[in-house]
Design a protein around this nucleic acid. Structure first.
Lengths: 339, 339
DNA sequence: GTTAGCACTCGTTAATCAGGAGTGCTAACA
DNA sequence: TGTTAGCACTCCTGATTAACGAGTGCTAAC
C-alpha cells in the first residue's frame, strides 16, 4: 500500500495533535481540519490503513489513535519543520555566570530545561585530544607535591602527590623543566609507554615521581571524563502523565542521578551532519527510558573536544522546538568558546 | 493531665508501630503487646487522653491513631534509643574512591542513601576560615594568567585572569613574592580592605592585577561555598506513599536539584553537643518538606571547617537508625580527614 | 471514491454496596 | 476506682454496577 500525500497529511495531523494534547486523537477531530475537507468516515478508512502499515496504533478498541514509534520516526525524519525559535536570552543568561566551564554547562542545562519543559543533560567536553599546555609541580608540604596541569582550552586539573622522600628545590626545578620540555604539546593519547620510560631514566633517582606525575596527568584528565554530566529539570517529567507514574518516575530519576547510564547517550557519536540525533522509545539502549524520547546534539569546541547536549522527555515531545533549541544552544556554546 | 508511665509506653508503641508500617495503629494492635497486658478498651481510653494532649491524631473518625509532630518530637527527644548499627563497610567504601574531597563526599552521600533508604545530602565544608597556604601566578598565554590558590586542608582553587597588558617574567615573579609574603597564613575573612590598598600601592603599575588576584582568591573560595552540596537517593522518596504523590514528589525533587534551598539546612548551626539536629514536619523552613523529617549532623574537619550531612525522609523515618548512621558517618569523615 | 448512518466496543466516572477495622460509650465486674 | 466486655456507630476501602460517551468498523446509498 502506498503512503500517498493524503495519508501523510493525516498522519501528520494525528501526530501534531497528539503532541499537543497527549490524548488519542479520533477521526472527527481530524476531519475538522479545513485543508483536508474530508468526512470522519473517510478519515477512518485512511486511519485503518495507517494502522495496518504500523504508523499509528490504538491503545484499545474504539479509542482514537496515537503515533507508534515508527510513526514518530517518520515524522522526525521527513515531516518536521524545525521551529527556529529565538533563544537569545540564552546567550545572556549563559554569559552571566559563566566564569568557569562547569558553571557554564550547569547553567546551560538549566536554561535548556526551563525553555523546553523537559529534562536536560549536558556532558562536559572530553579532553583526551587536547594538548598539554604546561605542568607545574609545587611543594605544598614537606612531603606533598601539588601538580597543576593545564590543557588547551584552559582546562585546569590539580593533583596532590604524596612523596616517600623529600625533594629539594633544585630537583623540583629540574623535574619541572624535564616534564615540560617533553610533554608540552602532547595529548594524553600521545604519551606513549616508551616516552614514559625515557623520562623516568632521565629523572634518575626521582623516576618514581615522574611515573606518579604522568599517571596523575592521565588520571586528572581521564578520571571524570565520563562522569561529568550536568542535569536539570528532572522534575519536569511529572508534567507528562505518561511518565509520572511511580515506577517509571522513580527509575527515570535514579537514571538521572546515577549519571553513569547517561554516559551511554554521550558515547554514541552524533547522527547527521548537524550532530543532532533522535532516539524514540526503544531506540535508546537505556531500559528505563523506553517510554521516552531523547534528542541529543554534539557540540565541538575544538577539534576532538566534543560534548553532548541532550533533552529527555515523553515520546510526544515537541520535536520541532527541541531540535531548534538544541541547535541554537550548540552554536551558542561553540561561539561562546571562541571568544 | 499527667503523662504517666503507661501513657508513655502506649505512645511509644504507637510510634514504633507506625514507623514500621505507615498505617494508623488501633487499640487492638497495642493490646497485643505482652508487656502491657491491658485490654483494647483500656488502651482506647488512654489513647483518647493522648489525643486530647496532642501527641497523636486520627486521620479520620474511627481510624487508628498516628503520631502528631508533637508526638514525634517527644519520641525523638526522650524515648529514642539510638541503634548503634555498624556501618564499617562505610569506611571501606569511602576510602575506595576517595582521591579527592568532592569524590569522597559524593560517595558518602550515596552510601548514606543506600544504607538508610532515604534521600541524603552532604555539604562541602566551608573554607572561609582556612588559612591560605600559597598563591601562585603563572602565565598560560600572552595575556592570561593562571592563579593557583592552595588553602589549608589542601583545598585547591584555580582561576584564570585575563590581562589588559602583557607581563614580563620578572614582574610576575615579583608579584608572586609580594602576594605570598603578605597573604600567606591569612584566611579570607582576615584580608582587610586596608591591606588590599597597601598591596596595590606596592604593586605600583600592576595594582589592577593585584586587585584582580585578591578578588579571585575571595571568589574562588567563597564562590560555590553555599552551592557545593551533593545529594543522593532522591528516588528513595518513592518508597514512601505519603511522599510519592505527584505534586509532593515533584516539589521535593526540584528542591533537591536546586540545592539552593538545601543551603538553608546547612546554615542553621547544629543542635546539641553531638551536632545532631532533627526537624519534624513544619519545624523546617523549607515549605516543600513540610511532610518530611530532616536529620542533620555537622561535621568539623578542622577548627571552623564545617560541613553538614543530612537525611531527608518521611516523618515516620527510623530516627534511631538514622541518628546512629549519621553519627557514625560524621566521625568517620572526621577520622578520615586526620590521616 | 466519498459519506451518512448505525450498531458495537470499551474506557471513564459516578453511584452503590458490603465488609471490616476501629472507635466511643455504657454497664458490669474486681 | 480502674478495668473490661459488649455493642452500636462511623467511615474508609474495594468491588460491582450502571450510565455515558467517544470512537470505531461496516454497510449502503450517493
Amino acid at each position: 500500500m502506498p503512503l500517498d500525500d493524503r495519508k501523510l497529511k493525516i498522519l501528520q495531523t494525528i501526530i501534531r495533535n497528539y503532541l499537543e494534547t497527549g490524548e488519542p486523537v479520533g477521526s472527527r477531530t481530524i476531519s475538522k481540519f479545513a485543508d483536508l475537507n474530508l468526512s470522519s468516515a473517510t478519515i477512518r478508512n485512511e486511519m485503518a490503513d495507517l494502522e495496518e502499515m504500523g504508523y499509528i496504533l490504538q491503545p484499545y478498541t474504539s479509542a482514537g489513535r496515537i503515533p507508534s514509534d515508527k510513526g514518530y520516526r517518520l515524522y522526525v525524519d521527513t515531516m518536521m519543520d524545525e521551529k527556529n525559535r529565538e533563544i537569545d536570552e540564552l546567550k545572556e543568561t549563559l554569559l552571566e555566570k559563566a566564569d568557569k566551564i562547569d558553571h557554564l554547562l550547569k547553567q546551560a542545562a538549566k536554561v535548556l530545561a526551563v525553555n523546553t519543559n523537559y529534562a536536560s543533560m549536558i556532558s562536559a567536553p572530553n579532553y583526551r585530544h587536547n594538548k598539554l599546555k604546561f605542568i607545574q609541580l609545587t611543594k605544598v608540604d614537606k612531603n606533598q607535591l601539588l601538580a597543576v596541569i593545564v590543557v588547551e582550552g584552559n582546562v585546569i586539573k590539580n593533583h596532590i602527590l604524596n612523596l616517600a622522600e623529600q625533594l629539594d628545590d633544585e630537583t623540583l626545578l629540574k623535574l619541572n623543566i624535564l616534564l615540560n620540555t617533553h610533554l608540552n604539546g602532547l595529548s594524553i593519547d600521545d604519551i606513549s609507554l616508551s616516552m614514559i620510560q625515557t623520562l623516568k631514566k632521565q629523572a634518575g633517582s626521582y623516576s618514581a615521581i615522574v611515573g606518579e606525575v604522568i599517571e596523575a596527568v592521565g588520571d586528572a584528565i581521564k578520571a571524570d571524563e565520563d562522569l561529568e554530566i550536568y542535569t536539570s529539570g528532572t522534575n519536569n517529567i511529572f508534567k507528562y502523565p505518561e511518565l509520572a507514574d511511580h515506577h517509571k518516575a522513580s527509575e527515570l530519576i535514579s537514571a538521572f542521578e546515577e549519571k553513569r547510564l547517561l554516559t551511554e547517550l554521550v558515547s554514541e557519536n552524533g547522527g547527521d551532519s548537524t550532530g543532532i540525533q533522535v532516539y524514540i522509545g526503544n531506540e535508546t539502549s537505556i531500559q528505563s527510558m523506553k517510554d521516552c524520547s531523547i534528542v541529543t546534539a554534539t557540540y565541538e569546541l575544538e577539534e576532538g573536544m566534543r560534548g553532548t547536549i541532550g533533552i529527555i522527555g515523553p515520546k510526544r515531545m515537541d520535536y520541532d522546538k527541541v531540535v531548534g533549541v538544541l541547535k541554537s544552544l550548540k552554536s551558542q556554546l561553540e561561539d561562546l568558546y571562541k571568544n
